[in-house]
């Protein structure tokens, strides 16, 4: 599979736009999963289950934060490519 460095400008723009779409569509799913685990933690009847769900919710929050960071980087790259 060709890396970004092997592509011409138009191919790079297309590849980054596709990546933006992939990352963008995932973010609400992570938020949804986080809310699901928070609700599950609230409904948990044992401390063990509660802690597990809280840990899972934190992981989803981490995924969301990481995806937003990647999304911002990709948007920046795209802007530089289009303006450059």
């Amino acid at each position: 599979m060709a890396g970004l460095n092997d592509m011409n400008k138009q191919e790079k723009i297309k590849a980054i736009e596709e990546m933006i779409q992939i990352v963008l569509l995932r973010i609400p799913k992570e938020i949804e999963a986080m809310h699901f685990y928070i609700k599950a933690a609230e409904k948990s009847t044992t401390d063990e289950a509660k802690n597990l769900f809280i840990a899972l919710a934190q992981q989803e929050k981490g995924h969301e934060a990481e995806l937003r960071r990647i999304l911002n980087d990709l948007k920046q790259q795209l802007m530089e490519l289009k303006n450059g």
């Binding site: 840990a55 929050k61 981490g62 995924h63 969301e64 934060a65 990481e66 960071r69």
Partner: peptide, 15 residues
Amino acid sequence: GRHKAGGDMTDFISM
């Protein structure tokens, strides 16, 4: 190569 100083790292710790 991912995280920049000056920012809040709280949400990233689980990753």
